[in-house]
Each structure stands twice: as structure tokens, then as C-alpha cells.
Design a binder for these strands. Structure first.
Lengths: 349, 349
DNA sequence: GTGAAAGCGCTAACAG
DNA sequence: CTGTTAGCGCTTTCAC
């Protein structure tokens, strides 16, 4: 039924040369004379020869392929990150095998195993919210396949990482809020067991301490990274009896949840409660009032991750390396000095 | 340097059985006795055996892999679509190889070739804005690899497709606007050369004709699918001297462009100009006023596409098939009867 | 139930 | 410059 796919041998026979000659010619190997190469290439095109990468990879023991594991796709941050990874890989002639854990640790393990079985040359991973087990990473290490963590990092000896400066980024945001004039500051925070939660918490504490402000435990809530976490978090703070002037949230979906809660309570942003969050998104720009944030440069993140894994692939003995990408603040209509929103388009600092 | 990866032979030798027995046992083949199977599986686990899919696929001539080509990732529609495709594939034990054309026709061809070389079992594609050339699709056909178009379709004999009901979806939206009371209706439309532009244009014309409304050519602009196209489109209409009461846009980014233009002109939505668009997004919900739209059920689209390609894979002689997914209207604060926005949360019809 | 033979399509190493 | 030999790791077929 299926049309016979044409192989190196087919070309070789027609031209009365050996399979090897064809293979080399097609790859532009200098061994082969210009003439031969040309006639081989022509025939290949004429016949519609399509190289078989499985065979090629099997015999060369390289796949020119990088596995990528992320928790989500339809999410501004990961969407941009993935796109950056794809672009950088494309520039370097590598293919990406993308898998999505859906924030599920078991599924993540399955994907990792699949990538190993596909014999990818390297792996880039942003772990799920719930990943705790180290075993699979040891397995990866044992197979000698390099792996790089990006953004959501597990600190395991031997693995490199690329992350944004979560701690100092948060510090900057809180400091900005203080400069704007706030001293009653709350935090709807992420869980401590994952770096992006933990580091952002530390940044918050740093900033408060640095400016001699007390942290009111009623105004600090820990939870997940979704809208409902923001909604519930704000409600909890509200019910505590008093409200801070300003709230920082660990992600933008959490901030959206706060917007919803504030709305349901008949309050107003930024009059009754002002807000900033960690992480930019297209929504930040369009929501009203538009939402200021700590911006993570996803393109740099993605690019660095690919470049780092490529280094590891090309130099298996390379030492681990930890890259931190600086953040900036994007100021929109929330958390603005004197709330002079009118003239403010959008500034980046 | 690289640790020796362990193979079927390694296991076979240790257990004094043949490689074939191990292969079968690991795949749960009924040929092998329970006992043997068990001991083989145990040893495999103990040794950390990781099957080599390249070898497996090469010899079995199946890859259990589906290629997916899309124009963009960081875009609400495609993000959701991709996620649906991944989920459905995962449920069916297929891997997805995702590639991104970045709306670039040449890059698309390259990706398609790569997928062929990877010997994917089938391909799902949403073509770029600029794809015109059919040659590569003929090549795919010649290789006997099934391909299904999703959303952005090329009508080539022999290929199946899954799309949303662009024409009737647009019809519904325009009809709704008419019921709300508008008769001066404009359209910032997509190019005619691609189905999603063309069909939506037809739907617009259908509705106007059906309700005996004249189309004012000054209020109809054709262009691309991005924000700038919406901005420029609205400006062009504005400069024509008169404004319609209501504008339908071919995508949501185009609508966002209109929001920006309207704002720059000191006008107001929906007072001075009301609007709806084709395609939902998270922004539609958060922008002010929140934007009503024709909703494309991305999950159904993705699911159907995967199921369809799977049918083709499992039955190579299957006839082509064209699936159309119905749309619904999501009504928010724009284009609402009497602009009774207050009580309206969000309704789906 | 088990295994021997053959081969998937390609590349690496070496010989000529 | 070209070709021979060997093999990547696995599955399929068929005989025992």
C-alpha cells in the first residue's frame, strides 16, 4: 500500500556508486568530487529522497534534538519561553521535542522517560508545581544526558540552571512601592518548596527589613500560582480585619484573582488597595487599571537555556553553571507615585 | 566518557535467553511465559534499561509520533489548540513533534521536511498566513504520510480538514448585532486568499444580504490578522468621513487594534462605536469594556484533529473527510442590547 | 514458549 | 576520491 520510500541504496544503484558515496555526497563531505556530488544531489532531488533521521541518528548516535518539558503551554510566560527556545534551537539547527506536564509530577516523569528513550541530546525543563522526587533526574544523569533547569529550578548537584533574579526582582518591586509611599504592605505568596515561591518570599522580606518595615503576618498568605489562589488569598486578608495599602502577588494570575476579589467586595484598585505582581503578560496591559509588574525577559531566558544545554552537549565534561537573568519593572497604572496615571503610557525601569 | 547504555542484549546475556525473548517480554507479548517475563522485567528495571525508540521505530517502521505545525505559540488560540492536541495525543499514547512556522512559508516547508525525515506517522498543520505553494503537500502525499489541516485549511484533494464554522459563526455575530439594533455595520476583514479570511467575509455578506442591509464599501477593510491591522483598518474607516455603528473584526488582535485607535481618537466603545470579533481570548474578558466574540472551541478542534489523523493512520485507505465545528457567541459588555452591561456577567449562546 | 536469521537505513572507520 | 566492512538496537518472520 504505502509507496516504497527511496533510500541511499536506490540512488547508489542507479548511479553505480556505493551507498557510502551517496551518503557522503548528500552531506557535502569533502571526500567526494564535485561532479559526483552534484549528480547524486540531482538524482536525490529528482527521486524525492527524504533522509531517514531514525536511521541516521541510530547509527551516528546523535539526534540533533533537545527535549523540552514545561508545565503549561497556554500561559503567557511559558508560551513566550517556548517560543524563544524554539527560535534559538532553530537558529542552531536543533529540533525541539516539547512535552507538557500539565503541572503533574507523574506525567513529567513519563515525559522525561520518553525523551530519554528518544535519545535526545539534551533536556531543558521547567518543573511542575509539585515535583519533589529526584530519582528521575538521577536516571537522566546516569544516562549521561545533559539537563538544564529553566525558571523553575531544582537544586541538584551536577545540573545547570537558568533563572530570573526572583529575589532581587521582588526586592525592586517592594522598594518601588515603598518609594511610592506605601508602608502597609501585603504579599500573596507562592509556596516555599519551589524556588520561584521561595526566592520571591525572601525578596519581599529583604525589602521590608531593609526599609525597617514590619511584616504583618495577617497580610501574608502562601498558596499556589493560579487565579483562585489570588482570589482566596485576598479574601483571607480581607477577613483578617484590616487591609494593607499595597499587595504584591507572586504571579499575574494571582493578581487577576485579587482584581476579581476586590471587585466582588466593592472595593477599587488602586484607591482602596494598590497592587503589583511578579511576571508580565498581555493581560497586564489590557486590564483596567493596567497592572504594573516585575518583568521576566522570557526571550533571554529561553535563549540562555538553549545555549547552555548546547554547551553541555558539545562539552560533556563542562562544570555546572548557574545563570541569573536580571528583571526590570514595568510600570503602568497601578503602584504609581501619586497615582498620576493619566500621562503614563508605560515605562520600563 | 558516556556511560554505556544498556541494551536488550545485555539483559539477554545475563539471563541466558535470546534478545528476542527479552524484546517480547518487555512488550508483554503473550509468547513468553509469565515467569520469564517477570524476571526479565525485573532485571530491566534494576539495570535501568531505557528502550531506544530510534532503533525500535527504525525496525518497526512506526514512530508513534504525530507532527504538528502551527504559525505561532504565544497566541491564545494556538496555545489552547496545541494544548488540546497534546492532551488528546497523550491519551492515545502518541507523541507530538511540534514545530512553529512563525507565519513564514519557507520555514513551514523546512519543518514539514523535517517531520517527514523524522518519519512521523501523520501530520497536523495550521498553515501560515502566507502559504500558497502546494508542492510540499504533494511530496507529503507521495510519501504516503497522512496529513490533516486544522483551522487554517488549504483545499487540496486527498487531505482531510477540521475547521470551525467560520461562515455561519460570522453570520451569527452580525445577526446578533442587527438584533441589538445596528444597521450601519462595518467589517475589518482578513485577506480572501485564506479560508479563515474568506469564509468570514462570506458570512458577513450573507448576514447583510439576509437582512436587506447595504454594505458600505468604506466600512469594509481587508488586511492581516494583527493588532496593527486593526489599528490601521479603523483609522482608514474613520478617515473615510463617516463611522458605522458597529464593527466586526476578523480576529481578536484586530479588535484590540481598534480599541487602541478608538482611544487615540478620543472616542468611546460602545457609545461611539460598538464591536465584536471572531475568536475568544483571555484578554477579551479583561479588557474594558469586555469584548464579545464568536468563540472557537479550541479543545474540540484539537481533539478532532488528532482523532482524524489517527483514523487516517490506522486506515490508510480512508477517504478524505471534512469536519466543521460549530461556534457559539460569548456576550460580554460590547454589542449588548440597549447596552445593559450592568447585570451581564457573561453569557454563551 | 523460545530463538535464529534477516534486515530496517544509515554512518564510521578504515583500506585501497 | 571511492568502496568495504561492520554495526547502531531493535523487531519481524518463521522454524523448532
Amino acid at each position: 500500500m504505502k509507496p516504497k520510500t527511496i533510500t541511499l541504496d536506490d540512488i547508489a544503484k542507479r548511479l553505480n556508486v556505493s551507498r557510502v558515496t551517496v551518503s557522503k555526497a548528500l552531506r557535502g563531505h569533502p571526500d567526494i568530487s564535485k561532479q559526483t556530488t552534484e549528480s547524486i544531489k540531482n538524482l536525490a532531488k529528482e527521486l524525492g529522497y527524504t533522509p531517514n533521521y531514525m536511521a541516521r541518528n541510530l547509527s551516528s548516535k546523535k539526534s540533533h534534538t533537545i527535549g523540552l518539558v514545561v508545565p503549561k503551554i497556554a500561559h503567557f510566560f511559558f508560551g513566550s519561553l517556548i517560543e524563544a527556545v524554539y527560535d534559538t534551537a532553530f537558529e542552531n539547527n536543533y529540533e525541539i521535542i516539547l512535552t507538557v506536564s500539565q503541572e503533574n509530577a507523574e506525567r513529567e516523569i513519563k515525559h522525561l522517560q520518553t525523551l530519554l528513550s528518544m535519545r535526545v541530546d539534551g533536556i531543558i525543563i521547567s518543573i511542575s508545581e509539585f515535583t519533589k522526587d529526584i530519582e528521575i533526574f538521577n536516571a537522566v544523569q546516569k544516562m549521561g544526558i545533559p539537563l538544564v533547569f529553566v525558571d523553575r529550578v531544582m537544586e541538584i548537584p551536577g545540573f545547570s540552571s537558568v533563572a530570573v533574579a526572583d529575589r532581587t526582582g521582588t526586592f525592586k518591586a517592594i522598594e518601588h512601592a515603598i518609594k511610592v509611599g506605601y508602608s502597609k504592605i501585603g504579599h500573596i505568596a507562592g509556596f516555599d518548596n519551589i524556588n520561584i515561591g521561595n526566592k520571591r518570599n525572601l525578596g519581599f522580606e529583604d525589602a521590608m527589613k531593609h526599609h525597617n518595615l514590619a511584616i504583618n503576618p495577617n497580610w501574608v498568605v502562601q498558596g499556589g500560582f493560579g487565579e483562585e489562589d489570588g482570589y482566596n488569598g485576598f479574601m483571607k486578608i480581607y477577613k483578617s480585619g484590616s487591609l494593607p495599602e499595597f499587595i504584591f502577588t507572586v504571579t499575574y494570575p494571582v493578581a487577576l484573582g485579587v482584581y476579581a476579589a476586590v471587585d466582588d467586595l466593592g472595593l477599587e484598585i488602586p484607591k482602596d488597595i494598590d497592587i503589583m505582581c511578579f511576571g508580565n503578560s498581555d493581560i497586564n496591559r489590557f486590564i483596567s487599571p493596567s497592572l504594573s509588574c516585575v518583568n521576566q525577559p522570557t526571550d533571554k531566558l529561553g535563549k540562555s537555556a538553549v545555549e547552555l544545554i548546547l554547551e553541555h552537549i558539545n562539552n560533556p565534561n563542562m562544570e555546572e553553571k548557574h545563570i541569573e537573568i536580571e528583571t526590570d519593572l514595568i510600570l503602568r497604572e497601578t503602584c504609581v507615585r501619586n497615582n498620576l496615571k493619566s500621562d503614563l503610557a508605560e515605562i520600563q525601569i
